[in-house]
Computed example of a mutant assay.
Amino acid sequence: MTTDPREREVRRTMAARELYSDGAPGLEGLAEERLRGKELADAYNRTGPRDEEGRRAVLKEMLAALGTGVWIEPPLHVAYGTGCTWATTCTPTSASPSSTTSRSSSGTG
């Protein structure tokens, strides 16, 4: 539970996708979340190229939402990761009728 008003304000600006600074007194509660995001990104980056199941498990733990068929090529870097949403949509093109386009929407990532 966030109790410090400075931390609540930083979280509000993150959610609003506004510029924020999270390295000031009163924001110590964010440090653990930031470190956890970086640990998960490190775990993802250490997966092997054939470990699709392991990569997907790490992404599901790290990200707010993960669409079917999303492919993120390491290295992945995040500040937090928890505000990131990755979704896929299939968009036919003249060059490739089955091409897949990945789109990301990041909040606190």
Score class of each variant (00 low, 15 high):
residue 85 T to Y: 04
residue 61 E to F: 03
residue 32 E to P: 02
residue 91 T to I: 15
residue 73 E to K: 13
residue 80 Y to C: 05
residue 11 R to L: 15
residue 36 R to P: 03
residue 58 V to R: 01
residue 60 K to L: 14
residue 35 L to R: 15
residue 104 S to T: 08
residue 45 N to C: 05
residue 72 I to H: 04
residue 106 S to G: 11
residue 91 T to P: 02
residue 88 T to I: 06
residue 24 A to D: 14
residue 9 E to K: 13
residue 41 A to D: 02
residue 42 D to H: 12
residue 105 S to Q: 10
residue 102 S to C: 12
residue 64 A to H: 07
residue 4 D to K: 07
residue 102 S to G: 07
residue 87 A to F: 08
residue 90 C to G: 07
residue 36 R to N: 08
residue 5 P to I: 07
residue 65 A to T: 04
residue 63 L to Q: 00
residue 91 T to A: 12
residue 53 E to S: 08
residue 35 L to N: 09
residue 13 T to D: 07
residue 18 E to C: 09
residue 106 S to K: 04
residue 58 V to E: 00
residue 60 K to D: 13
residue 90 C to A: 11
residue 107 G to S: 13
residue 92 P to R: 10
residue 103 R to Y: 14
residue 45 N to R: 06
residue 50 R to V: 00
residue 30 L to T: 11
residue 17 R to T: 09
residue 88 T to L: 04
residue 77 H to F: 12
residue 61 E to N: 09
residue 41 A to H: 05
residue 7 E to P: 02
residue 94 S to I: 12
residue 78 V to Y: 04
residue 54 G to D: 00
residue 84 C to E: 06
residue 99 S to F: 08
residue 94 S to N: 08
residue 77 H to V: 15
residue 50 R to S: 09
residue 55 R to I: 01
residue 17 R to M: 13
residue 62 M to P: 00
residue 14 M to Y: 02
residue 14 M to A: 08
residue 74 P to D: 07
residue 35 L to H: 12
residue 83 G to L: 01
residue 98 S to N: 14
residue 12 R to C: 06
residue 55 R to T: 03
residue 90 C to R: 15
residue 47 T to K: 05
residue 15 A to C: 08
residue 3 T to F: 12
residue 103 R to A: 11
residue 95 A to R: 13
residue 80 Y to K: 06
residue 64 A to D: 14
residue 71 W to A: 13
residue 3 T to M: 09
residue 44 Y to S: 00
residue 9 E to S: 13
residue 76 L to M: 12
residue 40 L to K: 04
residue 77 H to L: 09
residue 41 A to R: 02
residue 95 A to I: 05
residue 77 H to C: 07
residue 52 E to V: 02
residue 1 M to F: 07
residue 107 G to R: 06
residue 15 A to W: 10
residue 21 S to H: 10
residue 30 L to E: 11
residue 23 G to I: 07
residue 51 D to M: 00
residue 12 R to H: 11
residue 61 E to L: 06
residue 19 L to Q: 13
residue 103 R to K: 09
residue 16 A to K: 13
residue 96 S to V: 10
residue 20 Y to I: 08
residue 12 R to D: 08
residue 6 R to K: 15
residue 66 L to N: 01
residue 103 R to G: 11
residue 28 E to Q: 14
residue 63 L to T: 00
residue 30 L to A: 10
residue 65 A to Y: 06
residue 72 I to P: 00
residue 16 A to E: 15
residue 66 L to G: 01
residue 71 W to G: 03
residue 61 E to Y: 03
residue 52 E to C: 03
residue 50 R to L: 01
residue 38 K to W: 05
residue 46 R to A: 10
residue 73 E to C: 06
residue 79 A to H: 14
residue 2 T to R: 14
residue 90 C to Y: 11
residue 10 V to F: 03
residue 16 A to C: 07
residue 56 R to Q: 05
residue 89 T to F: 08
residue 61 E to K: 14
residue 69 G to D: 07
residue 31 A to H: 13
residue 103 R to T: 15
residue 89 T to Y: 08
residue 48 G to L: 04
residue 70 V to F: 02
residue 60 K to W: 01
residue 89 T to L: 12
residue 34 R to K: 15
residue 69 G to C: 05
residue 95 A to F: 10
residue 15 A to S: 14
residue 43 A to S: 05
residue 32 E to T: 13
residue 109 G to Y: 03
